[in-house]
Amino acid sequence: MSLLEIKNLHVEIDGKKILNGLDLTVNAGEVHAIMGPNGSGKSTLAYVLAGKADYEVTDGQVLFDGEDVLAMEPDERAAKGVFLAFQYPIEIPGVATMTFLRTALNAQRKKRGEAELTTPEFMKRVREASGKLSISQDMLRRAVNVGFSGGEKKRNEILQMALLEPRLAVLDETDSGLDIDALKIVADGVNRLRSPERATIVITHYQRLLDYIVPDIVHVLSKGRIVKTGGKELALELEASGYAQFQEAPVAAE
């Protein structure tokens, strides 16, 4: 059984069609890259997988580990192992980063019937994970993402991913706004989590990130559907030729 199976997914927001019969199968152990021009539906796909309200699924199915994800609340999905690294991580004034991390981790563990982490165990995990991502103690003492630079916010997303150890990580343009050093740190964080049990979907505009997170499969998304699928060389091809060829592709649903 595949870890994630998306079949004929149709999604609208405010009556506007964004996804038009998207099919995607991701097996455990794989890294998929989804590339595409602005407005092709990349972020919508990410949000729909995480369970954001406002998006109306008008047709199709999403199975995670054989279960209907669309019927689950966002927090249930997270506890099952779905993680979205936000394109624009949100600032939450007044909520301490450590409180947030601990609440999230323990909520997921509780849901899975696991014991809550003791304070020393939690602290140890945070120290290890933050050290690898060059996240300072000072950042951890602040409120969630408040006063963080763009790059710090993205690293904070990867920190959360490292602690929560999701089975499916969806990275929504995690590379945007990162300089080359930060990009390497983030990519290393993602690569550390690669394992035969886990899968990653990397949503990106540019090929650059894929030099560091090397995908097994690359998809091109245009007008709400996957229009081409290939190996990692497809990303390089796109870098050279651009997306224009795909935007002209006819969309059967319309």
Partner: peptide
């Protein structure tokens, strides 16, 4: 903000409580 917290696995009531506490905390 609620969605961000819930996407990390924090159930709705707990997410609301965190945000309310942050609001009053100031």
């Amino acid at each position: 903000l609620l969605f961000y917290l819930r996407a990390r696995g924090i159930p709705s009531a707990e997410a609301e409580a965190l945000l309310i506490q942050a609001f009053v905390g100031e």
